[in-house]
């Protein structure tokens, strides 16, 4: 696997989890929701920009990572997708 695929793989896994955390934070904390809204006029735009920003920023920072397993990505996808679905099944 090439260096970039490894770096961005870790960044991708982390960014997906940040997406889930942002969702839970904004749905449970109104102050945070309004802070997100005030950033760009809409909470969804702010969340998207933060998540994509985290992805590229982490990829820049993870210069020393040497290994990346597909199972890490699978776990991150499962956690983030499952988390979103479960959250809205319970609170939607």
């Amino acid at each position: 696997m090439q260096k970039n695929t490894i770096r961005y793989g870790w960044a991708l896994s982390l960014a997906m989890l940040v997406n889930l955390l942002l969702l839970i934070a904004k749905e449970t904390n109104h102050t945070f929701f309004h802070a997100l809204t005030s950033l760009t006029s809409h909470h969804w735009i702010s969340q998207g920009l933060i998540v994509v920003g985290v992805y590229f920023l982490c990829a820049l920072c993870f210069t020393k990572t040497r290994t990346f397993g597909a199972y890490i990505l699978a776990l991150a996808i499962l956690l983030s997708c499952g988390g979103i679905l479960t959250w809205y099944l319970l609170h939607g």
Binding site: G9, L12, M16, N19, V52, Y55, L85, Y88
Partner: peptide
Amino acid sequence: ETKEHLFFIALLLGLY
């Protein structure tokens, strides 16, 4: 709500 948040995961995977 689910659709708009799952989209970010598809977008990130798409960027990868």
